[in-house]
Design a protein around this nucleic acid. Structure first.
Lengths: 331, 331
DNA sequence: ACAATTGCTGCAAACCTTTGCAGCGGAGAA
DNA sequence: TTCTCCGCTGCAAAGGTTTGCAGCAATTGT
């Protein structure tokens, strides 16, 4: 069928062990032999059988990635980062979409765990206990979620939110509302906590919590009327999509953005510059998150000593665009 | 380390062959034995070693999926469809993102081909010859692309375009422009050809080709000024993103949509209802495409006789929304 | 010239599962 | 009772690769 190490051994007149070494550990083989073998392998189009290799090494050369929703460009970007980094490290990646379902998520992680070297779990929908149980199936790295004892990658949600708040306060806003995401979302908890804990340098500030909304356009629409009723002059939305929905509703009700109410989003997804006004938002380094999670996972898998790799800078950045402006003198 | 078939054999007092059969071909084993073995396997948490199984069966239980851009929700949706169907058939899926690069695409397909049972290649960026060469590496199914001799899945681009054109003509438009996508895109060729070939039942029609644009928001912006200059009262864009960029530019130039110019997109991506006016567009059955491509691939892999499965209905649907309206009496 | 060392290479086992073949025992038929 | 057949089970080989160990030859040191 396909060409094996044995065919190459025959063609180049050496044993299969030598072929194996010539390809995998070139320094253990005399240069002349190595060249001969490598040339034979090349010309015969040899590709190692990963199943056979995996059988003996116990490693598969692939990793698993579990995300809640592939159709969401946010996770698409994370996937791209994971993808790219894994490829350059010689790994392939299994991707599983859970449709935001905790059961599917558990099933996906545990079935993947048996056939990969490690799993990256993105925005876990499960409880801490369930996640902990999943970690028993094999190396696991969490993204956008922290659970005691499991390595994870996250960016500075709180810092981003504070930057946004400072920006709004500087524009003169004194009554600011937060349109939250799903109650169970780790990121939402971080953002919400940072919001409630925000204390400006000097000014008196009224903070209003509008409640929890689905992290979607229609979630934003829902929050729109509450935002108007609240009397806030600025609203921070859980993410860009919610912000866009919110703006849509405000516009429908003839409330001008940012003239009467400023709106800001989170994540700098592509949609943020597709709408008018363009969205002020926090840019989260999604691809970098993907890359960093692969690095972390592979360090664990290959047993690299902790801290051998510098912690990547996963800083966030405030992008000021048209949807935020100076607070109206009065409403 | 982990529990193998051998451990179960010992625990249940049978040979490893019997265990293997009890789990894989239950009818070949006496019921009492089967129950005993299955219970042991369950309680010991046995999971078959896929590498070992793959080594002997020559099958991996996984498929590969190669897409141009995971961050594009269009492909995200296709991935979801592939994903879901593969899972229910007991397959896992490797996903590779090529960043729209033909070289990366070839590399991805051929490296994946060695470790999966078959590959689904979405919107191939390569030439026909290169795609044909890739098909030699193993079972290959094409999506959104047709190459002689390679099985493929596509939906009715031309039919969708014609439905759109009829809609516009019915609204009184007599000068219609097409803002094309990338020259190398198969879908764009299909849509463009259908556009140029369109012949309405009765009316005199002027068709204008605005040229090729990147399939992005800024591609749409680029086409905006050309659209205005062309004198067309309606523009069909290559896809939703181009349509949104186009509308954005028209709005900036104080051309009202659909008052002065109607705009329509393609694909019904989520963005089509995020903007105002909502986009009239052609809904393409993305998830269904993903599912159908898995079905086709697995039929090939498992050697099912051709035609054993009914051809799925991958019809498209015209969604009329706010961005198209009656043609202005004059401009 | 001999011993010790070093650098390469080959042998063979191991990884876990599937599967063709043969053997065993029991049931039914003659 | 004896033969046949059948259902169930076990043996053993096979699949491609890696790797510890041993062997071999050449080189270096004395």
């Amino acid at each position: 069928m396909s060409v094996t190490i044995r065919d190459i051994a025959r063609a180049s007149g050496v044993s299969i062990s030598t072929v194996s070494r010539a390809l995998a550990a070139p320094e253990k083989v005399a240069e002349s032999t190595r060249l001969r073998v490598q040339e034979a392998a090349r010309s015969m189009g040899y590709r190692p059988n990963r199943a056979a290799r995996g059988l003996i090494t116990g490693r598969t050369g692939s990793i698993g990635l579990v995300v809640p929703d592939l159709e969401n460009p946010y996770f698409g970007a994370v996937c791209k980062g994971v993808q790219a980094r894994a490829r350059s490290a010689g790994y392939s990646v299994f991707i599983a979409d859970t449709d935001e379902d905790a059961d599917v998520e558990r099933e996906a992680v545990s079935s993947l765990a048996r056939q990969v070297d490690g799993v990256i779990l993105c925005s876990a929908r499960n409880t801490d206990a369930a996640v902990l149980a999943l970690a028993a199936d094999g190396p696991l790295v969490l993204v956008h979620r922290e659970v005691d004892g499991i390595p994870s990658i996250a960016y500075d949600n709180a810092g981003g939110l504070r930057a946004l708040m400072s920006h709004l306060v500087a524009l003169g806003h004194r009554t600011i509302a937060y349109a939250g995401g799903p109650e169970t979302s780790f990121s939402n908890r971080q953002r919400g906590n940072a919001f409630r804990a925000f204390t400006p340098p000097a000014a008196e500030l009224e903070l209003i919590d509008l409640g929890n909304f689905p992290p979607t356009f229609s979630g934003g629409v829902q929050s729109g009327d509450l935002a108007i009723a609240s009397g806030a002059t600025a609203v921070v939305a859980f993410n860009d999509l919610v912000a866009v929905g919110l703006i849509d509703r405000l516009t429908q009700r003839n409330v001008s953005v940012p003239g009467e109410i400023s709106v800001a989003g989170f994540d700098n997804t592509p949609v943020s510059t597709l709408v008018r006004p363009h969205l002020t938002t926090i840019d989260s380094p999604r691809r970098q998150i993907g890359r960093a999670s692969v690095d972390l996972l592979l360090d664990i898998v290959t047993g690299a000593e902790a801290g051998s790799r510098p912690t990547p800078d996963l800083g966030v950045e405030l992008l000021v665009r048209g949807s935020t402006g100076v607070a109206p003198a009065s409403r």
